[in-house]
Amino acid sequence: MYLDAAEKLDEVRAEERPKAPSAGARWQHFPYSCLLHHGDTCCEIAREWVIANDFAQLNGSDLLSGPRWLRQKYEWGPSPWPMHWCDVVERKVIDCGAHSALAHEVFTARGVTAFRAQFIQSYTADALSQWRTKWVDDKVSDHWIGDDVIYHEGNALLVGEDELKLWDSSAGWWINPRQNGGYGSLAAVRIFADGQWGGGDGFRWGERRIKPNEWTQI
């Protein structure tokens, strides 16, 4: 599913929605972004290139290192959906959904346990206004911009028995688990994962617990 369709789904389901968390309510049922595959060599070449290039870029570093090269190669910005593998690798600018999808692919190819993640982040009205203008100018949906928060996508990496690190793939950094509020801070997170993690208490992220498949307020 891609974002435009997801937005419609979100609208349809809005009436049925139970009381939503304060941050992320607008994206309560929003799915994470997925790249499409033409089922042909065009997309397979692209996918193989991303995976092989990631290993080359690791340069002998630990497999748990963040794939910052993706952010270096692909700027963050508006990108039209749906997007296929063969499209995404040719673009100069991709949005957080595409970044997150690529990062998930390389983490998984490395053999480490990774999950897709959705974030709600706080920003100022000025920042939101700038982004809205940019997305509208590019004729791309700005559904991800809220009143004082944004919807964002990233990745969660398992680094211990139930311990997570959160990778902001379109920024190229790990989100600081010690930060509380403020510009750019994480207001809510949802991690898509199967299984009973942390004996049912969820994943450990810094001092917090995050239950999979539901929005956790930070």
Partner: peptide
């Protein structure tokens, strides 16, 4: 030396992709 061996492994991954594609 260690980086050479990493490159070697990387090269094999590229080779595998070339074969496959």
């Amino acid at each position: 030396v260690a980086q050479w061996w990493h490159l070697f492994e990387s090269m094999l991954k590229w080779c595998r992709s070339i074969e496959k594609l």
